[in-house]
Nucleic acid binder design. Structure first.
Lengths: 214, 214
DNA sequence: GCCTATAATCTAGCGCTGTTAGTTTTTTGA
DNA sequence: TCAAAAAACTAACAGCGCTAGATTATAGGC
C-alpha cells in the first residue's frame, strides 16, 4: 500500500472535501487526519499537495471568493454595479459561513481577492472616482459585506425573555430576534447597502462639482 | 506546593494576562500552558477559574467591548451619537486587533455586547426610529465597524509591483498601499461612515414623512 | 525489456494542544 | 479541634500539525 496504481488525490478533490467538511461541521472539524480519512487516505499524504494547512485553507478561501460575480461592472453604472456586486459577494460568503472568519482576516495574496479588487477599482476610476477615493470605496464595501457575513447579529440572542428584562431595559423584545434571525440580518444588510450607496452618490456629486469632468 | 498561603490567581489577573498575551503575540500564542507560565502557575490551575478556554476568551472579549463608550446617546442626536459611538467602537477593537476575529463571530451572550445593543436600540427608538428599523441600524453599524476592524484592507498588498502588473491591469499602483495601510483604512472608514449616516438621515426623513410624529 | 528516477502513498513519531482525574496542602467555619 | 472546602499540583489522554524515512508503482531512456 505505498504508491497506488491510480492516483488517489488531486488539489481539486482535496479542496472540495475540505470545503464540504468545513461547511458541514465548522473550521475546527477540519484536521489533516479527519480530512484525509474523508478522502480514504492517511493524514500526511495531504502534504504532497499542500505545504501547510493554511495553504489548503487559502485554496478553499480562494474558491469561495472566486465565486463572486463581478461581470456587472462592465455593463452597469458604478452605483448599480456596486449594489449587484455586494449582493453576489454576500451570497458567496453566506454559502460558506464557516470559513468567513478565516477569509476575512485580510485579502492576503489570494488571486481571486486581488482579481476582484482589480475589477472594482478599475471600474470606479473609469466612472470618474479619484483613484484614492476609489480605493476607499472598495475597502469600505468589503468592510460592510464581510462584517455582515461574519456572524449573524440576531444569532446572539436567546429565546429566554427573562434574561433580558432584568438588566437590559430596552431589549425586552429581544428574544423575538432569535426566531427571525434571517430576516433581521437581511433587513439590516439591505438598509445599510441602500444608505451606503445613497451617501456615496451624494459624495460623488460633490466631488464632481469641485473638480469637474477630466 | 499545593495550596498556596496567598491566592495566586484571580479572574482579573488571568484576563489581563490573556489580553496582554493575545495583543503581543496573537490568538495562536494563547495556550493554557503558556498563559499559566506567564502567571507563574501550572496549566490546569486556570480551570479553577474558567471552565473552558472559550469561556476565558469570552471574558477577554467582554472586557474589550466593555471599553466602548455609549454615553453620547444620552446627550447627542441619534446621528451624531451614532458617529461618535462608531469611532469609540472601532477604537476599542483596534486596540486589540487580534481578538477581533473571535469577538466578531457573534455578540453571543456577552453582557457588554448586550448592554451596548440595549443602549443603542433604546436611543434609536426614543429618537423616532421604528423598532424594527432600529434593530437593523444597530446591526448594520456592527457589520461596518467589525468589518473594518477585522483585517486591514491594505495589509494584503505586497511591496513588489511586478506581482500586480502582469495579471491585474488596474492594480499597477497597488504596491503603494502597503506603505499607507493606516491612512487607507482610516480614509475608507471615514468615507463609509459619512455615507452611511447621510443615507440613514435620508431614510429617516422618508420614514417620518410617511408616518409622521407619534 | 530492463533499470533508474521520480511520484504518491505509507508508518512512526515529535512536541504541542485542551482537558480530566486525582492528590496535596492550606485555610476556613462549626 | 476537626471536617470541609479551596487552590494549587502532577500525571495522563487523545488529538493536533507536521517531519523523516521507508515503500512501492509508474514513467522515460537506452
Amino acid at each position: 500500500m505505498a504508491r497506488p496504481r491510480r492516483t488517489l488525490l488531486t488539489h481539486e478533490r482535496i479542496v472540495a472535501a475540505a470545503t464540504a467538511l468545513v461547511d458541514a461541521e465548522g473550521l475546527d472539524a477540519l484536521s489533516t487526519r479527519r480530512l484525509a480519512a474523508e478522502l480514504g487516505v492517511a493524514g500526511p499524504s495531504l502534504y504532497h499537495y499542500f505545504a501547510t494547512k493554511d495553504e489548503l485553507l487559502d485554496a478553499v478561501a480562494n474558491e469561495v471568493v472566486g465565486a463572486v460575480d463581478t461581470s456587472m461592472f462592465a455593463s452597469l453604472g458604478w452605483s448599480a454595479a456596486l449594489r449587484a456586486w455586494a449582493h453576489s459577494y454576500r451570497a458567496a460568503l453566506a454559502a460558506h459561513p464557516n470559513i468567513v472568519p478565516y477569509l476575512a482576516q485580510g485579502p492576503g495574496r489570494r488571486p481571486a481577492s486581488l482579481a476582484m479588487a482589480d475589477v472594482v477599482y478599475g471600474a470606479l476610476v473609469k466612472a470618474g472616482w479619484p483613484p484614492a477615493r476609489a480605493t476607499h470605496v472598495g475597502a469600505l464595501m468589503r468592510y460592510f459585506v464581510a462584517g455582515s457575513a461574519l456572524g449573524s447579529f440576531a444569532r446572539g440572542f436567546v429565546e429566554d425573555p427573562e434574561l433580558y428584562a432584568a438588566h437590559y431595559p430596552h431589549l425586552s423584545q429581544a428574544h423575538r430576534l432569535a426566531g427571525h434571525q434571517r430576516s433581521v440580518d437581511d433587513g439590516a444588510f439591505e438598509l445599510g447597502l441602500d444608505a451606503l450607496l445613497a451617501g456615496l452618490a451624494a459624495t460623488f456629486e460633490t466631488l464632481r462639482a469641485a473638480a469637474p469632468a477630466r
